[in-house]
Computed example of a mutant assay.
Amino acid sequence: MASSKKWATSISSIAAVMYFLLIIFQIPLFRVPCRFGTCKTPIEITSSQLIATELFPTYVVKVLLYPGAIVHVIIKNRTLPSYSRLLDLYNTSSLRKYTAVSDLQHLEIVAGSYLSVVGAFVGLWRQGRMSLFGTMLIIWGLLRENILGQIHRMFPTKSIRMYPMLMVAVVCAFLSIKKDVRKLIHGSKARRVKLS
């Protein structure tokens, strides 16, 4: 039987890869108004912010968006957009109409999206808590907006939603932390010893 350290390493590595795939392939986790119109993934929110603020060159944003665009094209059975026309797929024409004040209305979601995207990449070679904090910030922001109802007053036609895959992302982010997985394994072993 393998040691708890090996089990924890295996589980956290698989969870980190699954979290990375959820983020990079842009599996819809939520729905919130953003600079693209409506964003459903942390990468869309992060990319819209990077394009609007011009912090990074456009090709960096395209590299982030391209894997998810490939998945969406395969699912919808459409032709793959060229690299130069990739941003047209995400409706970047609405970027100028969206104000920075609106970003402050859901600051937790924006910050959580940044942490989720960076945490997904960092988690591939060094498991940490960044992706879990990012996902929890997104959930807090979505719950706060729904409870306070601010977003419904500002954008009555665009509502905020959480999709079930967000809970899968939380579980993957939690299980990608090796120390916490080891504690779970030790706790379950101690419980089995007490029962027998």
Rank of each mutant, 00 (worst) to 15 (best):
F155P: 03
G123F: 11
L166H: 12
R144G: 10
Q105W: 11
A120L: 06
V101K: 15
C172E: 00
Y114D: 01
R182E: 10
T92F: 04
S84R: 02
I177H: 06
S113E: 04
I160S: 08
A173Y: 01
Q127A: 15
M165L: 15
K158Y: 09
L86A: 03
S93L: 01
S159L: 09
A111M: 14
L143P: 03
H106R: 10
V101G: 13
A173K: 04
T135M: 06
V171C: 08
V170R: 06
A100M: 11
S93C: 00
L107P: 04
D103S: 14
G141N: 05
M136V: 15
E145S: 13
Q127I: 09
W125L: 12
V168T: 05
F121C: 04
S131W: 02
V118D: 03
R129A: 15
T92N: 11
G149I: 05
M165K: 12
V170S: 04
N91S: 11
K97V: 01
T79Q: 15
G119S: 06
L89Y: 11
M154V: 08
L87V: 01
S82I: 10
P81R: 04
S94K: 10
F174N: 04
V101R: 14
I147M: 07
R161H: 09
H152L: 05
H152T: 02
I138M: 10
I151L: 08
E145G: 13
S113I: 07
L95P: 09
M154Q: 06
Y90G: 09
K158S: 13
S159R: 02
K178I: 10
V168G: 04
M130R: 00
I177L: 05
R161L: 10
L87M: 00
R85Q: 12
L107F: 14
S93Q: 09
Y83F: 15
T157F: 06
I177K: 08
M136H: 01
F133R: 02
C172G: 02
M167A: 13
L166P: 03
D103A: 04
N146K: 06
S176A: 14
D88S: 09
L95E: 04
M165Y: 12
M165V: 05
G128F: 00
G141I: 03
R144I: 07
L132A: 12
K179V: 00
L104G: 12
P81S: 06
V101W: 13
V122A: 13
V122I: 15
G141H: 00
A169N: 03
S82F: 07
A173R: 05
K158D: 12
I177G: 00
L148T: 08
D180L: 14
Y114F: 15
E108N: 05
